[in-house]
């Protein structure tokens, strides 16, 4: 009797608190509660944005309507779509984020490979300067760049972003160089040395042996590069001003663009600019990134784990 009760108690204890081999019920409950709470905090702004964007003008004014709109109202999206000039700005955004990203990724891999595989004088100095380019705030180099672009007539053209990317000075190029440096260093040299003995040129070795084996680094660099270029608005706004208009740039002058399309005073009260329209615009702005993220999200985590981004 005594032992039976004892056994029961032990079973209950391990069910609640877990044992060496599996986690207990209590632990799981705590874990999920915390995860859901944190997940909610993360999703809150997005949910808020999405719900607000679906509210009709009367829902907005109704204090009873908080999280569930009374009807599925898409008018905000129609307006935001027109105000953002969506097809054009979307194409522009894709152009000025994908092209520099492709170039930046390739050039960063060249530089990273050179640093990882060759011994030459001043290498540590170069690494130090690469770190410095990451730390130096953009406004410390911005004005002369802008003036030079103006002189060359490149202000407002995508070249203003493509040129630095081609020379490994694109947006956050330093991180990508370090990622490639790290992943090439951790790759075995044997194949490359064998190819060298067979008389292959350095560039050929790089392209045919090193590049394929560092594929995860390429993918992670390209994805992050696209995301960061897309979201970077400070530099793009300055370099592309008066020329190409990207989606985030159009979003930051949303109010002005709205009033051009729907002049205040001439439209009825329901067509005035309200937060629902603004939130629709914001959502349209991040929608392409969300789509890309859900399609590629496996790569975000797994390849970062494989490339050893930590840089020890």
């Amino acid at each position: 009797m005594q032992t039976l009760r004892r056994l029961n108690l032990d079973g209950l204890k391990s069910l609640l608190f877990g044992s060496r081999t599996r986690s207990g019920l209590l632990f799981s409950a705590l874990l999920y509660t915390l995860l859901i709470a944190i997940g909610f905090v993360y999703l809150y702004p997005l949910l808020f944005m999405f719900v607000t964007s679906l509210k009709s003008p009367s829902d907005l004014l109704n204090p009873m309507v908080q999280w569930v709109p009374t009807e599925l109202y898409t008018g905000n999206y129609e307006k935001a779509y027109r105000v953002l000039d969506y097809p054009n700005t979307l194409m522009a955004s894709i152009l000025v984020s994908v092209v520099p990203s492709l170039l930046q990724t390739f050039v960063a891999s060249l530089v990273g490979y050179g640093l990882a595989r060759y011994r030459f004088w001043g290498k540590n100095l170069v690494l130090l300067f690469i770190l410095a380019t990451f730390i130096i705030p953009p406004q410390n180099t911005l004005i002369p760049q802008m003036l030079a672009y103006k002189e060359l007539g490149l202000l407002g053209s995508p070249w203003a972003l493509i040129l630095p990317a081609m020379l490994a000075q694109g947006y956050r190029s330093a991180i990508f160089i370090l990622i490639f440096y790290q992943s090439f260093i951790s790759l075995p040299k044997v194949l490359e040395e064998a190819a060298r003995l067979d008389g292959a040129s350095d560039l050929r070795i790089f392209l045919t042996i090193a590049v394929p084996s560092a594929l995860p680094a390429f993918i992670v660099s390209f994805i992050f590069s696209v995301v960061w270029y897309w979201n970077e608005t400070f530099l793009t706004a300055i370099f592309l001003e008066g020329g190409v208009t990207t989606l985030p740039m159009q979003l930051s002058r949303f109010v002005q663009a709205y009033e051009n399309l729907y002049p205040p005073g001439t439209v009825n009260i329901f067509d005035r600019l309200n937060e629902a329209v603004k939130m629709s615009g914001t959502f349209l702005n991040i929608a392409p990134l969300l789509v890309m993220y859900f399609l590629l999200q496996k790569w975000f985590v797994e390849s970062v784990e494989r490339t050893g981004i930590t840089g020890e």
Binding site: Y42, L43, L46, V227, W230, N231, E232, T233, F234, P248, L251, S252, T282, N285, I286, L289, L290, M292, Y293, Q297, F300, V301
Partner: peptide, 11 residues
Amino acid sequence: FLPVVITSGPV
């Protein structure tokens, strides 16, 4: 990881 993707100035 969602914030990595959507954190930008105007948003």
